[in-house]
Simulated scan of single mutants.
Amino acid sequence: MKQYFDFSGKVVLVTGGSRGLGAAICRAFAEQGANVVIASRNAENCEQLATEIEATFGVKALGIGAHLGRWDDIDRMVDAAYAHFGKVDILVNNAGMSPISDSSLATPEALFDKVIGVNFKGPFRATSLVASRMVEGDGGSIINISSIGSIRPQPEYAPYSGAKAALNALTIAHAFEYAPKVRVNAILPGSFRTDIAKAWSPEKEKNIKSAIKRYGEPEEIVSTVMYLASEHSSFTTGAMIQVDGGRP
């Protein structure tokens, strides 16, 4: 990775960045010289990771507690990032939630609204705030972390699939709206072994739905994120890239 990517002097904002895929993305960018803004609902976790990243990689990091389904929190997050670093070169809309429901009928309205809020409304607002400033400046790259569930929906997480499908559509719309200075792309991950894997049932561990016959590790999505963030993807926008081990 060091041979191909150098983000020295860049500022990266990662939502849902304090654990799982988000934390792996934050560490990878920091390793390649970027300053990092880490945002999630848990301010303490964000601040702890920021401290670790500064000590390990010698870059600057800022932890911000924000609910990524609430516009007021998103506005505050973006303002804090720009106040601290003066710019954002790369935005990774990674925050998401995918609760399982017994049925569509049994899905509470509050849960439905929360899923739509975090997975769709949040990226819409964050992108509109950051991309509009990127257009006025030197441009940048925005990466939406969608899901293979957006194109392979299942009944038990229907609202999540719908929200991520909407995020795919938003990716294309924003790619056109903010071009040519800002590129907007999406990654569709399959099942990755992150913190949530601790709650997986033995049946899920055995039922691996991918050609590679295993679950992904957080580090295995990092190179795709960095490709889309870098000038190596300068002719790529509005794209949906599957990183799912070959899901049927």
Rank of each mutant, 00 (worst) to 15 (best):
Y4G: 00
F5G: 07
F5E: 09
D6V: 10
S8A: 14
S8F: 05
S8R: 13
G9I: 09
V11I: 15
V12M: 05
V14W: 07
T15W: 01
G16L: 07
R19S: 11
L21T: 01
I25V: 13
R27E: 14
A28K: 11
F29R: 05
F29S: 04
E31P: 00
N35K: 06
N35H: 08
S40F: 03
R41K: 14
R41Y: 05
N42Q: 11
N45R: 14
C46D: 09
E47S: 11
L49H: 05
A50E: 02
T51W: 01
A55D: 03
F57S: 03
G58K: 08
G58I: 10
G58D: 05
I64A: 02
G65R: 10
G65D: 06
H67Q: 10
H67N: 14
G69D: 08
W71E: 06
I74C: 04
D75S: 05
D79P: 02
A80V: 04
A81T: 07
A81P: 08
A83R: 11
H84C: 07
G86C: 10
K87I: 10
V88W: 00
L91I: 00
V92W: 06
N93R: 11
N94A: 06
I100K: 14
L105A: 15
D113F: 06
V115R: 09
I116V: 13
V118C: 08
N119S: 10
F120N: 08
K121W: 02
R125Y: 07
A126T: 05
T127W: 06
S128D: 11
V130M: 09
M134C: 12
M134L: 13
V135M: 13
V135T: 15
V135S: 10
G137C: 12
G139P: 10
G140I: 02
S141P: 08
I142M: 02
N144L: 09
S146E: 03
S147V: 04
I148C: 05
G149K: 01
G149Q: 02
G149V: 00
I151Y: 06
I151H: 01
R152I: 00
P155D: 11
P155T: 10
Y157A: 06
Y157K: 11
P159I: 11
P159D: 04
G162W: 07
A165K: 12
A165P: 09
A166K: 12
A166D: 12
L167W: 07
L167Y: 04
T171I: 12
A173W: 04
A173H: 09
A173G: 12
Y178G: 10
R183T: 01
V184P: 03
V184W: 01
N185I: 07
N185R: 01
L188F: 08
G190V: 09
G190F: 07
S191P: 04
F192T: 02
T194M: 08
A197I: 03
A199N: 13
A199I: 02
A199W: 02
S201G: 10
S201T: 15
P202K: 11
P202S: 12
K206W: 01
K209C: 09
A211I: 14
I212Y: 14
R214Q: 14
R214V: 03
G216E: 09
G216H: 13
G216W: 09
I221R: 07
I221M: 12
V222M: 04
S223H: 12
T224E: 08
V225S: 00
M226Q: 14
Y227F: 15
S230V: 03
S230D: 05
E231R: 11
A239Q: 09
I241S: 00
Q242C: 15
G245K: 09
G246E: 11
G246W: 11
R247N: 01
